[in-house]
Amino acid sequence: METLNFKTNIQTSDDVAAVTQPINDFEQVDGWNLDTTAPDHLLTVQTTDTRIADQLQEAIRQAGFQATLVKR
């Protein structure tokens, strides 16, 4: 299992709801957490394949938000 961390601009529960389905659609995602109280609104994704980082960023962008990979 690998971890991907993203800085995001996701701030509210409505924002989290908007990205939930796009993230859950990835078969390689085993779990994820979004800390909206952290300064960087950190999204942590547990995955079996870190190569999906760019695809996750694009899915979040299409949901109307930004995500920047900070750690693989």
Results as ranks from 00 to 15, higher is better:
1 M>K: 14
2 E>W: 10
3 T>W: 12
3 T>C: 01
4 L>K: 08
5 N>L: 14
5 N>R: 15
6 F>L: 06
6 F>S: 00
7 K>G: 02
8 T>N: 03
8 T>E: 00
8 T>R: 03
8 T>V: 03
9 N>G: 00
9 N>S: 06
9 N>K: 09
9 N>D: 14
10 I>W: 02
10 I>A: 03
12 T>G: 07
12 T>C: 13
13 S>N: 14
14 D>G: 15
14 D>V: 11
14 D>K: 15
15 D>S: 11
15 D>A: 11
15 D>Y: 08
17 A>P: 01
17 A>C: 07
17 A>F: 10
17 A>W: 07
18 A>T: 06
21 Q>Y: 07
22 P>C: 04
22 P>S: 06
23 I>H: 09
23 I>Y: 03
23 I>M: 12
24 N>R: 15
24 N>I: 06
24 N>P: 01
25 D>W: 00
25 D>T: 10
27 E>G: 08
27 E>D: 15
27 E>F: 11
27 E>L: 11
27 E>P: 06
27 E>T: 15
28 Q>Y: 05
28 Q>R: 10
28 Q>M: 09
28 Q>E: 15
28 Q>L: 07
29 V>L: 03
30 D>N: 15
30 D>R: 14
30 D>A: 11
31 G>H: 08
31 G>Q: 10
31 G>A: 12
32 W>V: 04
32 W>F: 14
32 W>G: 01
33 N>F: 11
33 N>Y: 11
33 N>Q: 12
35 D>T: 10
35 D>W: 08
35 D>V: 07
35 D>P: 09
35 D>R: 11
35 D>C: 08
36 T>R: 05
36 T>D: 02
36 T>S: 05
37 T>Q: 12
37 T>Y: 06
38 A>W: 01
39 P>F: 10
39 P>E: 13
40 D>S: 09
40 D>Y: 04
41 H>Q: 09
41 H>P: 02
41 H>G: 01
42 L>C: 06
42 L>I: 12
42 L>K: 14
42 L>W: 04
43 L>W: 03
43 L>D: 00
43 L>N: 00
43 L>P: 07
44 T>F: 02
44 T>N: 03
45 V>H: 04
46 Q>F: 08
46 Q>Y: 10
47 T>M: 06
48 T>R: 12
49 D>N: 14
50 T>V: 12
50 T>P: 02
50 T>N: 08
51 R>V: 02
51 R>S: 15
52 I>A: 02
52 I>C: 02
52 I>M: 04
53 A>G: 06
55 Q>D: 15
55 Q>V: 07
55 Q>I: 05
55 Q>F: 05
56 L>G: 05
56 L>F: 06
56 L>K: 05
56 L>D: 05
56 L>V: 13
57 Q>F: 00
57 Q>P: 00
57 Q>Y: 03
57 Q>E: 13
58 E>N: 13
58 E>L: 13
58 E>T: 15
59 A>D: 06
59 A>V: 07
59 A>N: 08
60 I>G: 02
60 I>W: 01
61 R>G: 11
61 R>M: 08
62 Q>W: 00
62 Q>N: 15
63 A>W: 00
63 A>Q: 01
64 G>I: 04
64 G>H: 06
65 F>W: 03
65 F>T: 00
66 Q>H: 11
66 Q>T: 15
66 Q>G: 13
67 A>P: 07
67 A>C: 10
67 A>Q: 04
68 T>H: 09
68 T>V: 13
69 L>T: 04
70 V>H: 01
71 K>Q: 12
72 R>V: 04
72 R>T: 10
72 R>A: 10
